[in-house]
Design a binder for these strands. Structure first.
Lengths: 352, 352
DNA sequence: GGGGAGCGTGAATGCGCTCTCTGCCATTTT
DNA sequence: AAAATGGCAGAGAGCGCATTCACGCTCCCC
């Protein structure tokens, strides 16, 4: 039951110093003489001692653990983000504790409670919507929280997204410039802010040019649902000649349906533009023209503002206390031109 | 600094009971009267109390945290496994703390040390090789360890893999039955047991039929390295007419090179068979004939033996103490027939 | 009606550590 | 030479909880 690992007391005994001295040796920036450091390190080495992070967390109140809430990983954007997040945090001495959740509100609540039980120093919530009580809960516990790839109105909630609105708008402009006549949209999950923003930008782009949407389906960010939506949409006599699919993951499934089941050519018969630029988007088998969400930049940004909040908390002035607004970062999202959509004259991959 | 969260003492005070009583209420299977439970629950609710997992871990010696070591996530097999692992563990009341590592020995060592510092209840090491000192280290600390998708000779090391040898062998038999004449191999990382086993099975399958390998390249399980290997391999006059690529991730990159750069047709000019059956393998754009590593089964197996070890440890009889051998599970790995390789007569997807 | 048996409870202990506080000594200042 | 300074070590107080122990209570059976 009891783990008989060596403790700082053992090391202290062997090194002939006090336990406090051992602690200080393993605390960066503590005041210890070189001689003590040497003695302690030697003894620690000998006994295979390593400080117990949990005990340290208990007393110091900082666990150096970041809770990551994530809903699904089949969309390749998330594994990529997870890897980069984890790497970035690890570099700064933090680690990621993973919590999977359904998108359902109740489940998220329960998961957050569980996370708080682990005394995490901060939370990153990727692609989940939080109830405002939940946000309050974290605020009360003083656990900084950053939304990743989702945004919410709550001014106290920090978030990092790409410029979804302008991304969607760019797609509209691009497709119109390409002289497409029947432009359709396959949406993701309509509860997601990313979906709403992308679509809003897209629709505004269309209507500003006096173009109306030819058709609309819902894919819920899932491959098979998107495939079904595509099948349904292409049953019509007037088939779309251009498609804005709300992310790459769905676009790939849609493309499979179009090319493989319906014998349509992309981009000759129908142009496809999507969103994310996951690794698979650049594979030649799909070669998707897509809006890039720069995972690195988004991750770095999220980590930065999270750690900043953590630091600030210790200094005692939180946004939410001072009434300052939490940052809502929006990362530039360029259109990457590839082969899945007709390219109008004058458009090119500037500087990408 | 100090987090002013409510503690069991606060709850006890409000409920008019002792702190021990509160603790017992939150300890499944402890002996408490219904009346006490009710009082305590009510008070806890009121104060928003939730037991501190870290403190609990400290005193009980069990953190309910599993350390997951993983080298990279760009191969889609790993995100999938990670998600399933995390879900399976979460269901059993555990959580995953992620540690990324380079494949280099030194880095792995350091990471494992760090993990041990977190007092994890167990470790799952995915696709990393461990030095035997490291394994000893975990043994000394009594932290159960399971290798995932890698195996090692050390009889005390539990591992879960697919039947790599027989998988490789099946590929050989399949390609020979398909009457391919110039069969080549693009290997993964040669330090990986999976690579060695797959290739050993493959080579044995070839030589048993009196066939010699036409060419061999090394892709290190990385897309661009594999692409380079393919380019190199197809410079020759006598180009391969069949390719066993050591995993899907590389196979996709290779296929891009063959079709897009070299204008070769798959499977007409060259058949490709790979390994893993990641989600992308079944996308119509690639439609890979591949050996399936059933992620679910592998994950469940890994979780089972890990938790079993954890339970056994508490009971006091470890494999490594009793000299019993740790299990080395090998999951059946069927060949999934799709479109990237010529299908010989008489072969079909039996029961898949 | 006395002695177990059995359950529920509270006081107390300590998990391994950080951090404050005090005291010592060596060095500097006046 | 006396006083002030600063650097460093050790003692001690917890962090929030699970767990042991001993005690009181009820119930039951001879």
């Amino acid at each position: 039951m009891a783990r008989e690992s060596t403790t700082s007391v053992d090391v202290a005994k062997l090194a002939g110093v006090s336990q406090s001295a051992v602690s200080r040796v393993f605390t960066p920036g503590a005041s210890v003489s070189d001689r003590t450091v040497e003695k302690v390190r030697k003894a620690a080495q000998e006994l295979g001692y390593r400080p117990n992070s949990l005990a340290r967390a208990m007393v110091s109140g900082r666990s150096r653990i970041i809770g990551l809430v994530v809903a699904y990983l089949n969309n390749q954007f998330y594994p990529e983000a997870l890897e980069k997040l984890s790497a970035a945090l690890q570099e700064r001495g933090y680690h990621v504790l993973v919590f999977l959740t359904e998108k359902t509100q109740g489940d998220v609540n329960q998961v957050i409670e569980e996370i708080l039980g682990y005394q995490v120093d901060g939370i990153i919530a990727a692609s989940v919507a939080l109830s405002s009580e939940l946000a309050d809960r974290c605020r009360a516990e003083k656990v900084p929280l950053v939304l990743f790839n989702r945004s919410q109105d709550d001014p106290g909630l920090a978030s990092v997204t790409s410029k979804n609105y302008s991304g969607g708008r760019t797609v509209a402009e691009f497709l119109i410039a390409g002289e497409h006549k029947r432009i359709a949209h396959i949406a993701g999950w309509e509860g997601a802010s990313t979906q709403r923003d992308r679509e809003a930008g897209f629709m505004d782009g269309l209507s500003e040019a006096g173009v109306t949407l030819h058709a609309r389906g819902v894919g819920n960010f899932q491959a098979d649902t998107a495939a079904d939506a595509a099948r349904e949409m292409f049953k019509a006599d007037e088939k779309p000649d251009a498609l804005f699919v709300a992310n790459d993951h769905m676009a790939i499934a849609v493309m499979d349906v179009l090319r493989d089941e319906l014998q349509l050519k992309v981009p000759e018969d129908v142009s496809i533009v999507s969103y994310d630029d996951v690794p698979a988007a650049s594979w030649k088998g799909y070669n998707l023209t897509t809006i890039r969400q720069p995972a690195d930049l988004m991750v770095n940004s999220a980590v930065d503002i999270l750690l900043e909040q953590i630091a600030d908390k210790n200094a005692g002035h939180l946004w939410n206390r001072t009434g300052m607004k939490a940052p809502k970062i929006e990362i530039e999202a360029p259109l990457i031109l590839r082969g899945s959509a007709r390219i109008p004259e004058g458009w090119d991959n500037e500087g990408v």
